[in-house]
């Protein structure tokens, strides 16, 4: 694999990282909640996908939709039954609750599926590729990247063109005004976490088609999501997308240089950006308006 291919692959996996970040950023932007179980939801989606593909005759696109709906319901329920009860300026209770949830999910997955590494087999599409100009690019990564772009565009349209999307943005800015307009703040929060979890779940399922996962992959996914949000600049869709691309490239190229380094290069890039932000040099990195 040449470096050009590594960069292209990084860009394509980066689209998914952007979606992970988007899920985390929506929840934080709208509810001021940091969902520590974010990574476990991502992994849970992959397991749900594996199971549905194995025990039902449903085709892959339908499975993706089913997983997205299930994830939306999960996010809605979590917000409605627990997180709405600890709203407020103090972020600690919600973080503790979701951390507890992440422990529960991780260990339930170990109990159900074992601790082994798994992957999703989706047939011949997995190995098909296109070759042009001496480069060979997998068809599946391109397809997955396309889905990520479509989802980003979709969320952008949702946030700018629909009532619920405008309500999300209003809730992020000033929920009291929102309530005087007759909106139910808690229902908006439920829908927002549902959307956040659904986006991450789809990304998790797509990532599972490209790389293996285990019940313990959640932490890595959470840290990726977090790094994307910080690198991309808080609170902007474009930032999440670009941050995801950047992190994807750094990680894939880093893995090519040092195959055992895991997410180390992503972490290092994160700290470099953090340092640049603290100096004046970093102002050009501040994408987005916020």
């Amino acid at each position: 694999m040449s470096y050009v291919e590594a960069v292209l692959n990084g860009l394509m996996v980066g689209g998914l990282y952007g979606l992970f970040g988007l899920g985390l950023a929506l929840a934080f932007g709208i509810m001021r909640i940091v969902n520590i179980a974010h990574g476990e939801f991502v992994v849970l989606a992959a397991y749900l996908g594996v199971t549905l593909l194995a025990v039902t005759p449903l085709p892959l696109p339908v499975v993706i939709v089913v997983v997205a709906i299930a994830a939306f319901a999960l996010g809605w329920t979590l917000q409605a039954t627990m997180l709405n009860r600890v709203l407020g300026p103090n972020p600690v209770p919600a973080m503790v609750i979701t951390m507890g949830l992440s422990i529960v999910l991780r260990n339930v997955l170990v109990k159900l599926y074992g601790a082994n590494i798994q992957s999703i087999d989706i047939g011949p599409l997995q190995t098909m590729g296109l070759a042009f100009g001496g480069l060979s690019i997998g068809l599946l990564p391109m397809l997955i990247f396309a889905i990520a772009v479509v989802l980003f565009v979709g969320v952008n349209l949702l946030l700018t063109r629909t009532t619920i999307g405008r309500a999300f943005r209003a809730a992020a800015d000033d929920y009291e005004i929102l309530e005087t307009l007759g909106f139910n703040r808690r229902r908006i929060y439920n829908a927002a976490l549902g959307l956040a979890v659904a986006l991450s779940a789809v990304a998790g399922l797509l990532l599972a088609m490209r790389s293996s996962f285990s019940p313990f992959s959640g932490v890595e996914r959470l840290l990726i999501a977090f790094e994307v949000v910080i690198i991309g600049g808080l609170g902007s869709l474009r930032g999440c997308f670009l941050g995801g691309l950047f992190l994807g490239v750094v990680q894939v190229v880093g893995l090519k240089l040092y195959p055992n380094s895991g997410p180390l290069f992503g972490h290092l890039a994160f700290f470099v950006v953090l340092l640049l932000r603290q100096s004046n040099l970093g102002s050009f990195l501040a994408w987005g308006r916020k």
């Binding site: 627990m82 919600a94 609750i97 422990i103 529960v104």
Partner: peptide, 20 residues
């Protein structure tokens, strides 16, 4: 051991809700 971890997680979920 795995039940202990699940129980530990559930406790962490419940404590902020019932006795902050």
């Amino acid at each position: 051991g795995d039940l202990f971890l699940i129980f530990q997680g559930l406790t962490a979920v419940l404590v902020p809700l019932v006795m902050p």
